[in-house]
Design a protein around this nucleic acid. Structure first.
Lengths: 157, 157
DNA sequence: GCGTATATGTGATAATATCACAAGTCAAGG
DNA sequence: CCTTGACTTGTGATATTATCACATATACGC
């Protein structure tokens, strides 16, 4: 897991790279990465930050896709379902997954200043959470771990 | 931190107990636990599960308080702000805090079957999350940790 | 090709949340 | 007592986020 988001990096490269992995993954698993779905993923990758469903929808509509909410929500739901995007509940928004395919249990670090979102390694976090849940006899199926704060860049400024 | 939610317990007792602690806390800190706010906390405690703002509002309206959304949202915001309630983002809902005053960093265990919500000990979780964030130079100010799954009771049934 | 499952387009509507402003309440100081 | 200022509440309007229902189209297995 690379701490991509908070470091300078060749952005166009990371877009293409992630996109290729996503496509390979889709093929591998027999997923249908249709035009709308693919375009939504591209939009999220280009933005490189969390986007609301309606922001995505606006982009789609401008490109000739349907302009009703379900168009965006369905594509986003598909991507999230298959691990190609994540839903950031704190922001009512979505981001592209930067590590598609890699089994990862993401924790999100959300900068309250610049709204950037990074995926942090959450293996340890998840282990601790699992332990707490076990102690109560609770079985975890999914979890959201989101932190709000200041990213390195905004802290410096 | 007691694993209250998933065990049989004298419910009316826990309501009164938490309410008393909340009132003491408010006095101590010079908070104004006004009628609406107090009533909202009571409603959450009585329900003993996550409630949407509009559910709370409906109860309030039936009791002669205002019936516009801000009435509920403001009271809920106040309670959350001061640690007397929690916002469960996954459910767009709110619960009473079962441990007011105790410095605690809650993780929420949400049963997808019965919608009960328990606060789990998250000290370890938070430590791990802090470590991940540090590694990226990110400073955490607040965080939400929510897990969805099956509570002991629903697992048995 | 045919039939079936899946995906998309579209209009309507539901659910959640915030804004703006007026009116009321409370407490401290003159 | 009475004024003042901060905070709280009531209310109407509106913004934002999300889902439903149903028709149409597209892709896939046979």
């Amino acid at each position: 897991m690379e701490p991509l988001a908070f470091h300078h990096h060749d952005h166009s490269h990371c877009e293409g790279d992630v996109m290729h992995r996503a496509e390979a993954l889709a093929k591998e698993q027999g997923l249908r990465l249709t035009p709308v779905r693919k375009r939504v993923l591209e939009i999220l990758l280009e933005a490189h930050k969390a986007m609301g469903a309606y922001d995505v929808l606006q982009r789609l509509a401008a490109e000739g896709f349907g302009n009703q909410p379900p168009v965006a929500y369905r594509a986003l739901e598909f991507l999230v379902e298959h691990g190609l995007a994540h839903r950031i509940r704190r922001l009512n928004a979505f981001t592209a997954c930067m590590h598609p395919g890699e089994a990862h249990s993401p924790a999100f670090l959300i900068c309250r200043q610049c709204d950037s979102v990074a995926e942090a390694d959450a293996a340890g976090v998840r282990a601790a959470l699992g332990a707490s849940a076990d102690a109560l006899g609770f079985t975890i199926e999914r979890s959201n771990i989101e932190a709000l704060g200041l990213c390195p860049a905004c802290k410096a400024a």
